[in-house]
Write a protein that binds this DNA or RNA. Structure first.
Lengths: 160, 160
DNA sequence: ATTATATTACTAACATGTTAGTGAATAGCG
DNA sequence: CGCTATTCACTAACATGTTAGTAATATAAT
């Protein structure tokens, strides 16, 4: 069942781990007609009250061009509102609407319950360990890693 | 720097962890003009020699419709070849070409070296722990989790 | 004040993710 | 043998990821 490939492939392993977890929550989001990314944005807005797009990008690990489309769609769904920020005409403030605030209040407890059900089934220890490890890893990412020496590119090689 | 949002968001945390790791390898793949997903496929083919699309999907955690496009592009780049499987006219066998086999032999050692550099910078212990924990998690995914009880959908509600 | 630089949200172009559904082929069963 | 359910690769439609680049504005340094 589990294809025991590639000696070491941490990024792939992390994708699989994520899929394992997120698949437990997908039915909830689907029930409310939201994508994962849309819910990530709404959740941050619910907690922060208001936020600028670039802040949402950092929090949600979504790149700016993707965020543009996500906010556009959320706007069309009536789930966010935007107001220009006085003092800096480049920037915008995003906030929830009454509709999406109510929606969030409905979804959040369901998500929390699903977390409990996961811990009931798989035990809270492993989940806690993974939390701790991953957070340590993300901390460490501030420490520079030396990049491997790359060979000359083929096009350059051809010149000689 | 690290926006301390959302009490618990394991899927998001796993995305960030993955981004932390993969960003160390992106320069290598970019150097050779490959995307992450293309390289995942090539790597499995290098190790297995030959594989069917559905097997590649499982190994690489890529859905079938995405795989269709990835294989199409890899084919156009001259990096894979396909031959029909006798005995079952639905299925196809994918394999590397001479070009992509040479390419893989060039990339693999660079990836290994980059892993060593990561462990030099961040210490091998945390990486090892994450490996072990994530693998345990993926094992556990065979254990069913009770899905949370969802409320009746709004459209149904409106009928009454 | 003026220039150079940086930042913000955005567009464009392409690759991939996601869900639903299709047609061809096969396997399982009566 | 014939019927049914399943499997496989694929298409379609839309959302998001990814990289490069843009226009407008703001900031810093001259």
């Amino acid at each position: 069942m589990d294809q025991h490939i590639s000696q070491r492939n941490l990024p792939l392993l992390l994708i699989k781990a994520r899929e394992t977890i997120i698949s437990q929550f997908r039915p909830i989001l689907k029930h409310f007609g939201l994508t994962e990314q849309q819910w990530r944005v709404l959740r941050v807005l619910f907690e922060e009250g208001t936020a600028e797009p670039c802040y949402l990008c950092e929090c949600c690990e979504i790149l700016s061009p993707s965020m543009t489309g996500i906010l556009k769609r959320l706007g069309e769904m009536g789930l966010i509102s935007r107001e220009p920020l006085q003092g800096d005409k480049r920037r915008v403030l995003i906030s929830l609407t009454a509709k999406s605030e109510e929606l969030s209040r409905e979804i959040i407890p369901l998500v929390q319950q699903q977390y409990h059900l996961i811990e009931q089934a798989w035990g809270p220890e492993l989940i806690a360990k993974i939390y701790a490890d991953i957070e340590s890893l993300i901390e460490l990412s501030h420490v520079q890693v030396k990049p491997v020496q790359l060979p000359p590119s083929r096009s350059e090689t051809k010149k000689f």
